[in-house]
Simulated scan of single mutants.
Amino acid sequence: MRELRWGGVRNIRDLGGLPSSTSPTGETIYGRIARGPRRELISKEGWESARSWGLNTVVDLRCLHETGAREQDPEVDERSTENIVVLSTPTEDQESEEFRRTCFPILDSPEYWVHNWRILPELVRNSLRAIATSPSGVLVHCSAGRDRTGMITALLLGNAGVPPSSVVDDYAQSVRAMAGTPHQGQAGDRQAEWNSQQREDWIESVSPIVYEAAEDTQRAFDMIQLDRRDQRRLREMLTQPSVIFSAHKC
């Protein structure tokens, strides 16, 4: 099952089990990388499930001002997350004038991905390198687990030889999971008020953008200047069943 039931939190999925042209098994490997929304939503029982899955590292794509527990979040003691490494690698600089001007109107759309790569290549590169240099059992998350996480996931899956149509389906799954619910981040979110028809119309309209990103991941990697070794490491993390991935330095 790709859906991970970590305390009932929606939109947490294993990136394993997808068709892959680069995997000897024909599909991506379970237990290597997962995607999800803000980790503060995970309960004590959810963290126990995450440990059972094999969670070692959390790669947080949010800006620092977005992090931290909120009043409605479950109470979790420090023991629940003990020995789980949390890496803060924001993909956005919300103080950047160019990023604000270009991306803020479309932050809930994959339209902004290419601008993120162009304006802040080092930040996206750092996020991908954090995953590449971590041991197996990585959770990648932002706020809703849809947009920033969707961007990174599209690159991870496309790089792993997952067909673009399957990457689009994975993105759509997160839109369906989160649309029509209160936004988990700090900025406004059009999708929080959508009904099912608006949601499906949106998926249809933006699917070509996701498809293109997954079809030509090399374009993004070239823009952000991601090292070929990191590209290979990320591919192998999702495709090579016999390799043990421990933390390493590049």
Rank of each mutant, 00 (worst) to 15 (best):
M1P: 10
M1N: 11
E3Q: 12
L4P: 01
V9R: 01
I12F: 04
G17P: 04
G17F: 11
P19R: 09
S21C: 02
S23H: 02
S23N: 02
P24L: 01
T25S: 13
G26H: 02
E27P: 00
Y30K: 10
R32W: 06
R32P: 00
I33S: 05
R35F: 02
R35L: 04
P37E: 08
R38N: 11
E40W: 13
E40L: 08
S49A: 15
A50D: 00
L55K: 02
N56F: 00
N56H: 14
T57C: 10
V59Y: 05
V59K: 05
L61V: 07
R62L: 12
L64K: 10
H65T: 12
H65M: 05
T67E: 11
G68Q: 08
G68V: 14
A69Q: 10
R70K: 15
E71T: 13
E71F: 05
Q72Y: 07
E75W: 14
E78N: 13
T81I: 15
T81F: 13
T81P: 08
I84T: 09
V86N: 13
V86R: 08
S88G: 13
T91Q: 10
S96Y: 01
E98C: 06
R101M: 11
C103V: 04
F104D: 14
F104T: 14
D108E: 08
V114T: 13
R118C: 08
L120M: 08
L123W: 01
R125M: 07
R129K: 14
R129M: 14
R129T: 01
A130L: 06
A132G: 09
G137I: 00
S143P: 00
D147Q: 06
D147W: 05
G150L: 06
G150Y: 01
I152D: 04
G161T: 14
P164I: 04
S165W: 05
V168N: 05
V168H: 02
V168I: 11
D170A: 08
Q173K: 07
S174Q: 07
H183V: 11
Q184C: 07
G185W: 01
G185H: 07
G185F: 03
G185M: 07
W194A: 03
E200M: 03
W202C: 03
S205F: 03
V206K: 02
V210P: 04
A213C: 06
D216P: 00
T217W: 00
T217S: 03
Q218H: 11
D222T: 12
R228K: 13
R229V: 12
Q231D: 09
L234W: 01
R235D: 04
R235T: 12
E236V: 11
L238S: 10
T239G: 10
Q240P: 01
V243P: 07
F245I: 13
A247W: 11
K249Q: 15
